[in-house]
Nucleic acid binder design. Structure first.
Lengths: 335, 335
DNA sequence: CTGAGAAAAGTTACCGGTAACATCCATTGC
DNA sequence: GCAATGGATGTTACCGGTAACTTTTCTCAG
C-alpha cells in the first residue's frame, strides 16, 4: 500500500523503501531485538536516509503514553527552580522521558491553565511547585489520575508524591540563629508573598514568640523580589523602626539588595545590623560580608522527584507521602 | 455508536449525552458560531459536567497543526531569557499558541536533540537562541519547513526570521566608552564562551585596535558565570596585569562579582579601575557605584519575535531577514 | 406555495502510529 | 517424519480527533 509522497516521512515511506510493512519498521525502531539483524540495519539506514522524524502525536494517541512529564515553575529567572530542573533531568537520565517546562509566574490561575494544557498533551506526570492549587486544578488532577509531584514545601495532605522541606521550620531556625547571636529586635522583609514566603514568615513569628520577642517588625509587598527592592525596603524598615538589630530577608536577592543599601549608608553588617537571606544562591558568598542564608537541597530535591516519579511510572502504587529533605543554616558573616 | 465508559472523556461521550454526533461537538467547541445557540449551550454544559479535556495528540494528528511553538533557552536562571520569554508570551497573547520551553544548557548537541524532540511534537514554529547550530540541526530545520526564529544575535544568512542586536557593535561601543573615559589598558573578562560572548569580544578587540591600544588583556573560561567567578577572575587579571585601568566583563553577573572583589581589595571603582557589564540586569543599579552596562531590549525582542511569527504562521511568505533592535550604553557610575 | 440558497448537522475517511492477535517458517525433540 | 515450539513478520482494528463533502432543515424572495 504505497502512499502519496508529500509532507513528512512516515513509517510507511520507510516500509515501502525496504519492502516490509510499517509495523515491522515500528518494531525495528522501538524494539530492535525483535527484528532480525540484517532487516533492522536496512530499516535503520533507510530511516536515516529519508530523515524520518517520528510523529509524537500519532504514537501518543495509539499507545496512550506520551513519554513526557510537565514541570511547572513559577519563575524562569530564579536559580532555585533551574537547579531543581537540572536535578530532575539528571535523575530522569536515559529513561526516555521528556521534561516539558511551563511557566506560571507565581499565579495559581496560570498554574491551573497550564495543568489543563499539559493534560491535553497527555503528559504522563505533573510536577508542581508548592502544595496550594485552585479547586479546579485539584479537580483536573483528580480526574487525570496520573502521578503528581508537589514540591518545595511540605503538606500533611499530599495529592500524591510530595518532596520538599519544612519552610516554617527553616524560617524558625534562621530566626533562632539571630536570637542566638544576641539579636533582640528582628524584622522580616519579604516580597512576592507566595505560600513559601508565608510559611517562612510563620516560622519567624513562632521563633520570636517562643523567645518572648516582638513580631511587629515586618514589611512585605506583593512585588517580585529584586535587589533594588531589597534596598528600598530595608530603608523603609530602618526609618520606621530604628531599633532593629536584625533583618531576616525572605530570599537572597532581597538580602543582597539590603546589604548594598547598608553599605551605602555605611551601616556595619553585622555589628550594627544582622542580615540573612534564604536559599543559598551564589551571591551569598560573593558579598562582603558573605550573607547568612538557609541552604536548600534543590539539586537533591530534583533528583528525588525523578526517582520517586520513575518508581510510580514504573507501576509502583500511589501512596501519598511527604518526604522532608531538610535544610542547612549557613551563618556566612552577616549575622 | 456508543462507546465503552472507561478512561478519559471524549467527544463521543459528550455527543452520546447530548444526542448528536461527535463532529458537531467538535464544532461547538472550536467554532461556536457554526452550531445553533441552544445546541451549543447543551454541548458546552455537557462538556463541563463530564470534565472533558481535549486530546491534543488526536487533534494535532488529524489537523496537522499543534498550535504550539517551541522556545529553546540556554539557561533557566538567566533573567535575559526569562524576559524574552515574557515578551513572546505577551506578544502571542490570545492567539492560542502554547509556548513550550526547552533548556539547552548552552549545548549545541542538546539544542539539536531538543529540535528533534519538538519536531516530533509537531510544533508550528521554533525559536532558537543564537545563529549557530549543528549541521544536523540545520538539516532537521530545513526538512521540517516551519517558521524558525533565530534570536539575540544577528546573522547575514538567517534561516528565516532573525531578531536581535549586533553583539559585536555593542561590545565595541562599550569599549569605546572606556576609551572615552580616558582608559588605556582595558581588559576583557568572560566566562561561558558562547557565541555571543565571542562576538562581544570581537567588538572589544576591534575598538581597541582602532584606538591603537593593546588587546592582550583578556581572560576567559568555559565555566558558567557566577559572582564568585567574576571576583576570582578579576583577581587573576589584576595580579597578572597590574596596569589594567578598565575591565569589560562579558555580563552583569561577572561585573558584579568583580566589583565585590574590588570592594574587598579597597580598590576604588572607577577611580582606580573602571568596570562594565553587559545586559542591564537588575543588579547593575543596586551596587555602589551602579555598574556600567549595555542594556539590551529583551522584552522588545520577545514581542517582535511574537509579531513576526504570528505573521508567518498566518500565511506570510518566508522572507529571511535580520532585524536589529539595537542596544543602549548605560554609564552607571563604574566607568 | 415553491425553489434557491444558506445554515445546521451528519457521513466518511483519514491523520500516523501501536496493540493484539494471526500467520509463516525454521528448529528441535522424540 | 511430524507435532510442538518459538522467533520473525503480517493483518486488522483502533486511538480521538478533524477535513471535506453530503444531506437535511430552515428562510425567504418571487
Amino acid at each position: 500500500m504505497p502512499r502519496r509522497s508529500s509532507g513528512r516521512v512516515t513509517l510507511q515511506d520507510i516500509a515501502d523503501r525496504v519492502g516490509v510493512t510499517k509495523i515491522t519498521v515500528s518494531r525495528a525502531l522501538r524494539e530492535p531485538q525483535r527484528v532480525s539483524a540484517p532487516l533492522r540495519e536496512r530499516i535503520e539506514s533507510a530511516a536515516k536516509t529519508l530523515g524520518y522524524i517520528p510523529n509524537h502525536s500519532a504514537g501518543a494517541l495509539a499507545s496512550g503514553r506520551s513519554h513526557s512529564v510537565a514541570l511547572l515553575i513559577p519563575s524562569l529567572s530564579n536559580a532555585v527552580f533551574s537547579e531543581i530542573q537540572r536535578g530532575i533531568e539528571d535523575g530522569l537520565g536515559a529513561s526516555g522521558y521528556q521534561v516539558l517546562i511551563g511557566h506560571t509566574g507565581y499565579s495559581f490561575l496560570e498554574e491551573e491553565r497550564l495543568i489543563d494544557t499539559y493534560l491535553r498533551f497527555g503528559v504522563d506526570a505533573l510536577i508542581l511547585p508548592g502544595t496550594r492549587h485552585t479547586e479546579h486544578a485539584r479537580h483536573l488532577l483528580r480526574c487525570a489520575d496520573i502521578p503528581v509531584v508537589e514540591t518545595l514545601e511540605l503538606t500533611d495532605t499530599p495529592i500524591d508524591i510530595n518532596v520538599g522541606l519544612d519552610q516554617t521550620a527553616a524560617g524558625a531556625a534562621m530566626t533562632q540563629a539571630f536570637i542566638d547571636q544576641g539579636r533582640r529586635c528582628i524584622g522580616f522583609l519579604a516580597a512576592r508573598m507566595d505560600h513559601r514566603t508565608q510559611l517562612r514568615m510563620a516560622g519567624w513569628e513562632s521563633a520570636l514568640r517562643a523567645a518572648g520577642l516582638s513580631t511587629e517588625h515586618c514589611l512585605t509587598t506583593a512585588h517580585p523580589s529584586t535587589y533594588r527592592l531589597g534596598g528600598e525596603m530595608l530603608a523603609s524598615m530602618l526609618d520606621r523602626w530604628p531599633t532593629l538589630d536584625g533583618i531576616f530577608c525572605n530570599n537572597d536577592d532581597l538580602a543582597a539588595g539590603a546589604l548594598f543599601e547598608c553599605q551605602r549608608r555605611r551601616l556595619e553588617v553585622p555589628q550594627a545590623l544582622s542580615l540573612a537571606g534564604f536559599n543559598g544562591l551564589d551571591i551569598v558568598e560573593a558579598t562582603t560580608p558573605p550573607l547568612a542564608t538557609v541552604v536548600t537541597p534543590r539539586r537533591r530535591i530534583g533528583e528525588t522527584i525523578a526517582d520517586r516519579l520513575l518508581a510510580r511510572l514504573g507501576g509502583a502504587p500511589r501512596q501519598p507521602a511527604s518526604e522532608n529533605l531538610g535544610f542547612e543554616i549557613q551563618l556566612g558573616g552577616s549575622l
